[in-house]
Amino acid sequence: MPVLKCPVCGNPVEVPDDAMPGELIEHDCGVVLEVYRDSNGNLALRPFEGVQEDWGE
């Protein structure tokens, strides 16, 4: 299981082996993180943007 760094608290975050960009991970520090691919094509984490005004069902 890859371990990435939480961009908010800096602590390690375990990411499932089959994680895909767009997947959400709740971290112990209370932040919801979104998996994405950085410019090198590696999986990385960023704070989830939260519900936006054009979101819907």
């Binding site: 895909m20 960009p21 767009g22 997947e23 959400l24 979104e34 989830f48």
Partner: peptide
């Protein structure tokens, strides 16, 4: 095509 991978997706 997706942005957030929810349970639905």
């Amino acid at each position: 095509l997706y942005d957030v991978l929810r349970l639905d997706e």
